Computed example of a mutant assay.
Amino acid sequence: MSQATNTPTALVLGLTGAIGGAIAKALARRGFVIRALTRRPPGQRPLLDFPVEWREGDARDAASVLAAAEGASLIIHGVNPPGYARWREEALPMLANTIAAAKAAGATIVFPGNVYVYSSASPARVSETSPRQPTTRKGQVRLEMEEMLEQAARDHGVRVIAVRAGDFFGPGVGNSWFAQALAKGGRAATSLQRLARPGAGHAWAFVPDLAETFARLVDIRAELPNYTMLNFAGHYDATGHDMTEAVRRALGRPDLPVKPFPWIVLWLAAPFVRFMREAIEMRWLWTKSLALDNSPLVGLLGAEPHTPLDDAVGAALG
């Protein structure tokens, strides 16, 4: 609790990222004081539509996280290694810092999960109890992160609220497959790119809906077990082209060309560009169907926050 105002404080690691900022906004609407750890000097910090208590520091530095977490009742772990690289070298230590700070402060960890813990051998519809057998480097790191959180909850009483979701899209979400590939150029796009193999279903997460889901779980956190992992269904593109058709409708351009994504370019560049190698590793998510069963989440909340697809796509396009 904040010592000055006796209002709850949420420390956000990764406030300038897509999900960290969205969760912070949802919590600010509920009266939380938002505190953020940043390496940016004051003149380079973003102007947001809610107050932020900035703390200088780095999520990779244990002492910085521990100091920033003092008095916080929530720690939102929305930070990832930059450049889609150095997952093992940076993601695991950063989460260890968050766990240590949460243990010291008595704070609940809010953790956005993803589907990297699955593989091409996973069933087409996964639940929270489906086997986690990743076959990629990033998937193995994400599995180890989930296991770290499970152990912290089991052995040290650290409370964790985690939600798995598909690919992010939404307003201001620029570093995403939606913005950088499928609808590159936004409303000025001259063509769209089809990422998924025809017939391969793909899970998408509209970030404002996912953030509201986290906030509603925070509202009932006293009723949840120490470790809570839930699936967020989001928008499931069952055919592999539902999303491109939604973009066409949002733009009012039903004849906008849709071209196959040039995966060959990534393959050719992979030996020289690490980002390309990392992206190719997750191509399986575009060649097989993977949907998220959200039955337990709906059982807790009554319904999953869900913006209609055309409205969500319109907002994502700006």
Rank of each mutant, 00 (worst) to 15 (best):
S2K: 10
A4N: 13
T5L: 13
N6D: 14
T9C: 15
L11W: 00
G14K: 04
L15S: 10
T16W: 01
G17Y: 01
G20R: 01
G20F: 04
G21D: 02
K25H: 11
R30T: 10
P51A: 15
E53A: 15
E53Q: 15
E56A: 15
E56S: 15
D61F: 01
I75P: 03
H77C: 06
G78A: 14
V79F: 02
P82R: 02
W87K: 04
R88D: 13
T98Y: 00
A100V: 04
K103C: 05
K103E: 15
K103I: 01
K103H: 14
A104T: 07
T108A: 09
I109T: 12
V110P: 02
Y116Q: 05
A121L: 11
P123Y: 03
T129Y: 04
R132I: 08
Q133V: 14
R137P: 10
R142Q: 13
R142H: 12
E146G: 02
M148K: 04
Q151V: 12
A152G: 11
A153Q: 11
R154F: 04
D155V: 08
V160S: 09
A162H: 00
R164C: 09
F169R: 04
G170S: 08
V173S: 14
N175D: 15
G185K: 04
G186N: 02
G186M: 00
R187W: 03
R187P: 01
L195Q: 07
A196D: 12
P198Q: 09
G199M: 07
W204I: 07
A205T: 08
V207C: 06
P208D: 11
L210P: 02
T213V: 10
F214E: 03
L224C: 02
P225L: 09
T228G: 00
M229S: 14
N231E: 05
A233L: 05
G234M: 09
H235V: 08
H235N: 07
D237G: 05
G240E: 10
H241G: 14
D242W: 00
A246F: 03
G252M: 06
R253G: 02
F261I: 03
P262R: 06
I264E: 14
I264R: 15
A269D: 01
A269S: 05
F275T: 15
E278T: 13
E278K: 07
E278V: 14
A279D: 06
D293M: 12
L297W: 00
L297K: 00
G299Q: 00
L301V: 01
L301S: 05
G302E: 01
P305C: 10
H306S: 11
T307G: 04
L309P: 03
A312P: 04
G314R: 13
A316V: 12
L317I: 11
G318C: 11
